[in-house]
Design a protein around this nucleic acid. Sequence first.
DNA 1: CAGATCAAAATTGTCGACAATATCCATCAA
DNA 2: TTGATGGATATTGTCGACAATTTTGATCTG
Lengths: 223, 223
Amino acid sequence: MQMAAESPVTHADRTFFQLRNDIVEGVISAGSKLSETELSTKYDVSRAVVREAINRLTASHLVERKANVGARVVTLSATGLVQLYQVREALEGMAARLAAENMTQSEIDALQGLLSDHFDEVKSGESYYQEAGDVDFHYRIVLGSKNNHLISVLIDGLYHLVRMYRVQLGMAGPRVTTAFDEHRHVVQAIANRDGELAEILMRRHILYSKNNIERKLIQTSKR
Amino acid sequence: MQMAAESPVTHADRTFFQLRNDIVEGVISAGSKLSETELSTKYDVSRAVVREAINRLTASHLVERKANVGARVVTLSATGLVQLYQVREALEGMAARLAAENMTQSEIDALQGLLSDHFDEVKSGESYYQEAGDVDFHYRIVLGSKNNHLISVLIDGLYHLVRMYRVQLGMAGPRVTTAFDEHRHVVQAIANRDGELAEILMRRHILYSKNNIERKLIQTSKR
DNA sequence: CAGATCAAAATTGTCGACAATATCCATCAA
DNA sequence: TTGATGGATATTGTCGACAATTTTGATCTG
């Protein structure tokens, strides 16, 4: 999937992408303060562009800002994770419903092709699956909804937070084969143009997914 | 309802609120270009604060920005309206479900009180209802979800766009009494702590609501 | 020692100037 | 007339300096 390469055109763009990546990957740790001057020397740009980058991150819910005080990276928590997945369930459920109505036949074919590629990987045991494959699957369906609001809220916003949770909790986990089956059923419903079923299956898939990552979170906090 | 008075603390805040209001109310017309210098003289602040205000509006989907070109107020369209309501259906449906689980008993009591006040108004024929009452109803349920993502996406984001459509299409319309009944049923489900039903009813309410406003849009475009 | 007070230091907010880019418009060639 | 070219104009992007606010921490007081 030619992942709509986000190419920075302005300094603020570039700084925004770098900063976002550093936050998601944990290079800048969750809950830490973002000093404008410090970051401006680190990324070698003026404070103004750092400010703009931070403002954009605030819009993605990766950073919280208080007037006259400054910005902090969000802190990860169990309740935060649950709330995030509740929103995902609602939005991606709707996305699956709309995808069933709006995806072109060739897009559906491509989606099925993607799935059988994954199947081969899983069978031959390579399968790190989760990260690359799962993301790709969800992206295609969200884009297939053809709903701009849905697309931007999820892809520009929530997904980065989801990834932040995954990365920082060290998700490589199992859940490969069962998730694969769930994906297969969703695609089947979309291919049948059954939006109602696609929504139900997608919501359930995300619910399971939440339970899985939540279990990890609890394990981690016990250690 | 003590509507969490958004009080501007910084110039950028104030400019953001003013600009947002001017856009929603149609003082600055849909689709028009936002010149930074022009606005900075109009609101009597520097270009930097105008830029920040515009960036925030971009995050709320009220304006669109292109690098090195500038920002424009979004244009309203039938498909845009449909897409907006699809997202509302998903998010507010989930909000109603969560509200049924998470609202305190006193919050539910207050919500029922609000409804019977509205009932008196409707019966005595005052009833402009739609704007004030409807907004209040939806706000309470979204807040009752206790889900921060849901709250911010809807209240800081989509609702302003919804209002923009309503204002600019001159919605004062009928649909008062039937909407009232729909509200009543949703509240009943929440009072019964039946999240599943609350979600279904809320989704249907929003669907009807969309059909109603869509009809107006078609009428308007015919004129 | 706990808490209040206040000046110093650090950080964010705002501004005007300059640089980089896009847009406009007159000129020219086919 | 149409379309291309290139320079003038206007607009956005970036910067460093100053203003306003918060935070720090040293001193004083009970």
